[in-house]
Amino acid sequence: MELKIDKVTKQFKDLKAVKDVDLNFTPGIWGLLGPNGAGKTTLMRMMVGNLRPSRGEIYFDGDTIHSLGGEYLERIGYLPQHFGYDKNQSVEDFLHYIGSLKGIDKATRHKRIADLLEQFNLSDVKSKKIDKLSGGMKRRVGICQAMLNNPDILIVDEPTAGLDIEERRNFRQYLTAISKDKIVILSTHIVSDVEFIANYLILMEDGAIIESGECNTLINSIDGMIFETVVEDEEMKILEQKYCIVNFHNEGDGKVRIRYISKLPLKNSKLMKPDLNDYYLSKVRGAK
């Protein structure tokens, strides 16, 4: 199973939201990371067929998704950034509604919905109106609807926006649990969302792909370049211009502990193990 994005560009009047993107998705969790306005949502909307590329094509197992039409849509699940629902519908009604639109017959739908509600801890609120649920629960309903047709490709756009730490952790767990043999594409600007669960990483900025590849390989590419040291407060301004500082902590008495990326460390620096946050900031800033 392969989802291929071939030199895709999307132009909105005078704004190029996505520029010549080439990607090849295979089963696993793909984290699509980038700052706000990087073009993640536009790319995802093209992947689900809601937007048509201005240039380039998107292929699923060799055929363009537009030529596949319904056949392709049967195999995808999508949770948009702004999860829309009918305020008057209960959780169960809503899932039945979307299920019918996904062409799932009634009997299968009943079973599938019961399973999903159970899996996502929503059984107790199935008769409640979605509008009355908490943000986390709403998101879970969102992922349930995306999973109704047991899709091969699951595309979720900023699924954790507005959720608390616990809900975000739960959400990551759900995604991990359902990701087996599927292509899961998760877009976010929150590094920790993908850090522990993504197998692959795509870094986007200004509509273009900066880096992509296996998560660990990418992180390891900056191994030996992450250091921590304590500096004087007044040195900060100069250091900020010279180094890519990824984190700092005020130590008191005019001292600041900084974490920075550099091939040549400052004196008294301690070598640290790199993480995704370091990698992300090194690339995004580097691109600038």
């Binding site: 689900v48 809601n50 319904g70 849509l73 999860f83 829309g84 979307i98 062409g103 609807q145």
Partner: peptide, 10 residues
Amino acid sequence: GLDEIISTTS
């Protein structure tokens, strides 16, 4: 925003 979901169903 429901339309966004509807249009991605088969």
